[in-house]
Amino acid sequence: MSEPILQIRNLSTVFSTRAGDALAVDAVTLDLNAGETLCIVGESGCGKSITALSVAGLVPYPGKVVGGEVLLTGADLRKMTPAETAKVRGNRLSMIFQDPSSALNPVHTVGKQIAEVYRLHKGMDAKQAEAAAVELLGAVGIPDPQRRMKAYPHEMSGGMAQRIMIAMALACQPEVLIADEPTTALDVTIQAQILELMRQLQKDFGTAIILITHDLGVVAEMADHVAVMYAGQIVEYADVRTLFKSPKHPYTQALLRSVPSMGASQDMLEVIEGRVPQLTNLPEGCLFAPRCAVRRTADESRCTTITPDLLRVGPGHHCRCWLTAPSADESSREVELV
């Protein structure tokens, strides 16, 4: 297995709101291996996007990253000056977002927006950057790229715009690409094309991808590793096979049962009862405990009193649950990922 290219260590982000401080990202620790895809899944509002933005240093006001490290090949992005971070973003670490139609600047041509990346990071002049941009547009499957360069974002379909975003993100062949639900806003056939494009470019450039999604089908198709998030915390982390085959966390299990699976005839899909807790008013103990069906039958007092740690439950498999926690003598090997 290759060295992790991106190491996220205890990353925490707080939103100070009138209702109190919300820990939207709670000591998230993750590794991303070069050339691999890590999927982050979880319900709406569990902190997937904020985790991604925290990694890139783009958390919106009133949010603030309050602790942790983001090591890109060993160098901590959080310790860099704004000028240094600007050199990394779009060059070694890129992002694409959910809604491509609002992610492009409406008053500039797409050609100009792509060329800007080359001018910023590759020191090209306007002419060179334009030529490079035309070539790149062709590479991401935009027909008639020369003409498309002069188009404005509002003249493009969502799928086309997302291709432009991908082109922009991959222009400098970054080591890491963070894609926050890149296909959620697109219709199904376009979704498949975009995912295929990402996979192709990943193969060509060796880019490692953090893919955020709440579509488990996408996870099955794209992921090498999966992290499941709940209320700002990673509750389970494993390689994709292990996670689908033997999920340990009751939340993951419920999540998997809530999707229709091909082949198996399921009369009814399960819904997870209750709602995601409010980040300003978190329950004591395990954050999932109030909704946890397993706990109700298990009779484990720690669930509602002490927050469980993310513990190793198998090779490269970690879970944050008292019910699956290894017995005391084993737990010395905890929290060490991979």
């Binding site: 600007a86 890129s94 992610a103 910023l120």
Partner: peptide, 16 residues
């Protein structure tokens, strides 16, 4: 400044 495309610009590495 709160719009998505400004975030995109920052994500591209455009200085503040």
């Amino acid at each position: 400044l709160g719009r998505d495309y400004v975030r995109t610009a920052r994500a591209k590495g455009v200085p503040d």
